[in-house]
Structure formats: C-alpha cells, structure tokens
C-alpha cells in the first residue's frame, strides 16, 4: 500500500511538473537557463549549498551576537541572487512557496529574538524545502531531456475547460507563493485575475453540472481566499484555503470531462 501511495504521489508530482513548466514566471525575467536544466544542475546544487551556508552563518551570528548583527533582512537577497530561484519557480510552485515560508520563518524567529533552538528548527525546515526543491528540479531536468517538458514560454492560453482549470490550480499555487513572499496585494491580484480571466469562463459550463460546487467556488474566489490573505494569517492558513479549492477544482474537472465526453458532435 505504501508503495502504491508513493507511486501515486510521484505521478501527481510529475504531472505537476509537466503542467507547471508551461507557466510563465510572474517575476518577469527568468533566464534562458530554465530551458537547459540538465546543464545547470551542478550550478543549482552549489547554489543550494551556498544558501544553506549563508543562512547557517546568519544563525551562528544571531547565537553569538544577537538579532541586529544577524541582519535577517538579507535572507531575501540571498534567495533572489541565485539562478535556482527561477528554476524552482517555473517548475514546482508549491515548494517555491515553502522556501519563502522557510526564509521568513528564519527571519521572523530572529527578529522576534526567539531562543536559538527555535531559529534552528526554522532553519532545518528551510533546508529541507531547498533539498526537496533541488530534487524537483533534477526530476524536471530528466523530463526536459526526454522532451516531455514544454519550453518555458508565453502560451496563448488553455483551449479546453479542463486545461483552464489546470491553469487555475497552478495560479492558486502562485497565490500561496506570493503570500509567502509577503506580497499580499500581488497574491490578491492573482486571485481576482484568475477568477475573471479563467474561472469565470468555465463556470457557466460547470454550473450545468453542479450548481452547489460553483456556488462554493464563487465564495472561495470572492470571499474566503481574499479574506484569508487580507487577514494576515499564517501561510498555512492561506495554503489550507487554496488546497480546499484545488480539491473542489479536481471534482469540477471530472464533471467537465464527463460532460464533454457526452457532448453532441458539431456536424
């Protein structure tokens, strides 16, 4: 059973990679290196080690000299200065969000002058996310080598309702990432944009299948998720709302897939 669950998890993960690769970074210039992951794996590995060393040094300084000397603001500069940043962003946004969560976990623990063992716990969580992210990028590189990963590019958008909901789910991952980056306005902007430009285009077809499901997702998009973001709660709270929405969107995809298979032919 455990093996089966692991296989399922791996399949979902690979699926996420394949879907996420077509996504354009919301952060503008991401660099051509993301289309040549295999060639850059050594560089990414070195970068992950470098980040871990820098954060470790920061925590050491905190332990020895206190919060001010640790210069916790630098966690963001450290992360944004590496190429690996965009490699994971375009390939697996959920872990990208966890990295931001980890970075702020360390920063906020230092700023709050928490006991060093609590800061170390946050540091360990960050390291775990970074290694997990490197694993995801290595897997993505493998699929890219086999030609199974699309070039990262601007797409003209999904053409079916099911593909549209895939993109909606990816954008919701990005909402969590932006919230974890402490960019709540940007996160809210993505929610509104996703609703108006993507979800709204398929909810007419969905309401024919399950009116209650649409009612529930309408509320999530327009009330629950914006409220969770504005409420300044933890990343976990926002991730929880998004996760519930993604579960509902999975049901929506099944319903739309079934409806499409039963649809009459044009001619």
């Amino acid at each position: 059973m455990k093996v089966l669950l692991q296989s399922c998890h791996k399949a979902l993960f690979v699926c996420s990679l394949l879907l996420a690769a077509a996504q354009v970074s919301a952060n503008g210039d991401i660099g051509e290196h993301v289309n040549h992951l295999q060639d850059n794996l050594d560089k990414y590995t070195k970068e992950v080690n470098w980040i871990n060393e820098r954060i470790d040094a920061m925590v050491d300084t905190y332990e020895a000299k206190g919060a001010e000397a640790a210069e916790s603001d630098k966690v963001v500069d450290i992360w944004e200065s590496v190429l690996f940043h965009s490699a994971i962003e375009v390939n697996y946004v959920p872990i990208y969000a966890s990295i931001w969560q980890g970075l702020y976990g360390v920063k906020e623990a230092i700023d709050a002058e928490k006991p060093v063992n609590e800061v170390r716990a946050e540091q360990a969580a960050l390291e775990q996310s970074l290694w997990q992210a490197l694993g995801a990028v290595k897997l993505a590189a493998l699929y890219q080598q086999r030609g199974l990963l699309e070039q990262v590019k601007t797409t003209s958008g999904p053409t079916t309702p099911v593909a549209t909901l895939d993109e909606v789910k990816q954008r919701l991952d990005r909402v969590v990432a932006k919230y974890a980056e402490k960019l709540p306005d940007e996160a809210t902007g993505i929610v509104h944009d996703t609703y108006l430009n993507l979800f709204e285009g398929v909810e007419g077809a969905l309401i024919e299948q399950d009116a209650a499901l649409v009612e529930s997702l309408e509320k999530d998009f327009n009330v629950t998720l914006p409220k969770a973001i504005a409420g300044n709660g933890s990343v976990e709270e926002v991730r929880g709302v998004v996760s519930d929405m993604q579960t509902k969107l999975n049901s929506a995809q099944e319903l739309l897939e079934q409806a499409e298979s039963e649809r009459k032919d044009v001619f």
């Binding site: 003209s156 053409t159 285009g201 007419g204 077809a205 649809r263 032919d265 044009v266 001619f267």
Partner: peptide, 29 residues
C-alpha cells in the same frame, strides 16, 4: 476567447471536415 471551449469544438469540427484546410489560430483577449 469565447464560451469555455465550445468555439474550439466548432473550429476542430470544421478542420476535421475539411482535410485540405489548415487553420492557424491565435487566441487572446
């Protein structure tokens, strides 16, 4: 962009019916 994929179904059907016809589509707002 139109009605959640139904315009796409129409275009696909037209192309299927006309094997010597190639339709390039650019989609957008």
């Amino acid at each position: 962009r139109g009605e959640g994929g139904l315009y796409e179904n129409v275009l696909e059907a037209i192309q299927k019916r006309n094997p010597d016809f190639k339709l390039n589509i650019r989609r957008g707002v």
